[in-house]
């Protein structure tokens, strides 16, 4: 709505935007300086690094999901196939790889669960549920489900 401004407004949509024009200073026309984002910008701050790691560790999450599906598929092909598969998995290289995947999964899970209160605003009996309760409920559900699985495994 800056209809009267005659210098480029600085808006991206404006054809006179900094990068688009006036590399040279001319009287009454500002020459903006725009910093370029370095490739390693995410090393600038620990918070950014953590963010990038959270994004990257979505790969282990994807891997774990596909792995689980693969396991079910192998299981459907009979006990021998499954035996061979398990032997494969006992290989030290695989064990090391899966240890890494586990670290990535835990990192992603923890950072992700910690963010849940931002996206979720709950009201119970007219009062706002505090953030720690939402995070706690998520962790509780996680631990509870893990416990159920362990119980099933132990009872086998």
């Amino acid at each position: 709505m800056k209809s009267q401004a005659r210098i480029p407004t600085g808006r991206i949509s404006d054809p006179g935007y900094p990068q688009a024009s006036n590399p040279e200073y001319t009287r009454h026309h500002p020459r903006w300086y725009r910093r370029h984002m370095p490739i390693f910008w995410w090393l600038r701050k620990f918070a950014y690094t953590k963010f990038i790691l959270r994004e990257l560790t979505s790969q282990p999450v994807m891997y774990a999901t596909l792995f689980l599906l693969g396991k079910v598929w192998v299981l459907s092909r009979g006990p021998e196939a499954y035996e061979i598969f398990v032997q494969w998995l006992s290989h030290p290289a695989f064990l090391a790889f899966h240890a890494l995947v586990l670290v990535g999964l835990l990192f992603h899970t923890v950072t992700w669960l910690n963010l849940t209160p931002k996206a979720l605003v709950l009201r119970v009996a007219g009062r706002k549920v505090p953030g720690w309760a939402i995070v706690g409920a998520h962790y509780g559900a996680w631990l509870g489900l893990s416990g159920v699985i362990l119980w099933i495994l132990a009872g086998r």
Binding site: Y48, F51, L115, P117, K118, A119, V121
Partner: peptide, 26 residues
């Protein structure tokens, strides 16, 4: 928004824009 979350950390008035954005997504 990919939810870096720093906007809410630096906000001097505790506005929590990151929360506003994620809620809108949901």
């Amino acid at each position: 928004c990919t939810f870096v979350g720093e906007c809410s950390i630096v906000c001097p008035k505790d506005v929590d824009p990151a929360g506003a954005i994620q809620r809108y997504k949901v």
